[in-house]
Design a protein around this nucleic acid. Sequence first.
DNA 1: CTGAAAGCGCTTACAG
DNA 2: CTGAAAGCGCTTACAG
Lengths: 342, 342
Amino acid sequence: MPTKRNRRVTISQVAEESGVARATAAFVISGRAEQLRISQQTIKRVQAVAKRLGYIPNQLARGMITGRTQVVGVILGGVWGKFGQYAIEGIREVLDAHGYTPFLTIHSWDEAREAREIDTLLRMRADGVIVMPQITSRKECYEPLFKQHVPVVFFGDVPFDIPEALVAAWDVRPAMRRLLEHLAGRGCRRIGLVGERFFKFSRQRYQVFTETIRELGLEHDPKWDTWAEVGDAEHPEWAQAIAAMPDRPDSIVALNDNSGLQMLDSLRRHGLRVPEDIRVAALGDTIETVEASAQLTAIREPVREIGRAAAALVLEAIRNPELPPTERLIDAADLVVRMSTG
Amino acid sequence: MPTKRNRRVTISQVAEESGVARATAAFVISGRAEQLRISQQTIKRVQAVAKRLGYIPNQLARGMITGRTQVVGVILGGVWGKFGQYAIEGIREVLDAHGYTPFLTIHSWDEAREAREIDTLLRMRADGVIVMPQITSRKECYEPLFKQHVPVVFFGDVPFDIPEALVAAWDVRPAMRRLLEHLAGRGCRRIGLVGERFFKFSRQRYQVFTETIRELGLEHDPKWDTWAEVGDAEHPEWAQAIAAMPDRPDSIVALNDNSGLQMLDSLRRHGLRVPEDIRVAALGDTIETVEASAQLTAIREPVREIGRAAAALVLEAIRNPELPPTERLIDAADLVVRMSTG
DNA sequence: CTGAAAGCGCTTACAG
DNA sequence: CTGAAAGCGCTTACAG
């Protein structure tokens, strides 16, 4: 018989080779040697042997014992655009500092896929999960995580049927104000809106929108609003009603850049010139569609910061299972002026 | 004392609740019930109980026993551009079909980061690794994987000091031919080149370039060539020499789109008009820099297909540790004509 | 510091 | 099918 393949160096071998007890070696390796008042000399020796033998701790075994894998699942939509990169970097920065590893997965904007990824993370016994929810996913999708008491932090937004959750997201109030002031500065007075109803925060953003309109003394008529009813579909017909209005708005605020880009496209199809006839500005600047977004005035979402907040929150929840529902809101209002507002 | 947190349902509980032996339950759950000639009735019962209890197998425990985690580490540069998305989708498609899970990590074009990610995958006992090597990384970086006999498949290219490896990459010969024929069709005769020396395949691409030049009866003078000596740095000075040449080339082929984009920029800085004075065309169309790449004629790299090949190869290597060094080359020559060739 | 021991949740031969 | 058992590699309390 050949020797068993993949036979790795174990802590027992390190102990034996060092001439110490297994417990001693284990304490040295896990960096808690002081607890046992182990001499510096012994520590050095064990460390040297571990290095020489190429010892690499088995996280599986560790996880079995401690009940902690030190892994946090991260479910993204996909790896398009800068959004994902910044989000990951922010998340990783914080997890790293606390000895946790992100386990990155991707739902590709597919509900079934998202459910599968969640199942995988559950089997892998991730200690917690950070998820950018798929736009049509509902509470049911995350139920398995809740049932197993795996802390879930929602990144950016929450399905609206999950009223209480751990959330790290953008505080859009300052951004909304900045956006509307920018439009007002361009002479706009009559402000319409375009957005997607699916998420809780999208709805809250609408409220922020109407409140800010009022504060700034601008006009808003709900009949100028356009709401997407389906997830990813395109909406070339959106601007049809707007184009036909005698008293149409002079500008449109988009609750996210995706709907802003689609509105931009739709306005043109229906013969409206941007920015001459109508201006468009969006919350969020994730640049999914590149050429188009180069034309859309928008406010950058502080993705990296939200990533950090999300990671910090999931770690808190891992440490304290009793942590109540929490919303961490990051404000930022970094305006990028482009063609769509002239 | 509170009950221990995170206490999950175990196979023993499923067995007990089903009134069968633990071994029986284990066989049913792992889908090998026939081996023990377990009755359909028992199978149904155990499955029903498992479902009712919300049993989720512990992959850690499984991995401990079998020596296989069913996890394949995937190390990408980052999640910018379409490249990553397509690569992941291709990889996942194949891994999924074989019961493996991709463990996605990102080196962010940082050598130290790449080494850390590798260490993490080693601790997690990934069964194999697919890596898009960081451009300046050398053999040393992957040594820990080799030492532990973890199969490594290089995606797209290999550091040049690793002569023998498992590789899934693009067969650029047909693409090169297509690109040069396209340039010839635009009246080009004198072809220069720009590229990065760091990788093995970049070097091979040069050979393919010169051979194809010869086959097509085109001209090439090595003094027209530009080689990047450093990784990610920008090279605004690149075109200086070219602009000054009395007998300069009428077109430049880039060995990847990044160097093509930089050359495009550099040519303009030095007063050359593209495509009037000089044309540029690239191998690879990963669209990292968006606005710029909208101008660069290029041939798409078959990233999704390479992903599939890479995944298939790593699975073979996991099954057969004796698998000799292998190169899986995918050919594709999907030309996208843009401004840079007029 | 040592040494023996229990136990994490599972797989897997083995005798019945 | 059952039942008892070994073992994967580790952590962790415990008596010395």
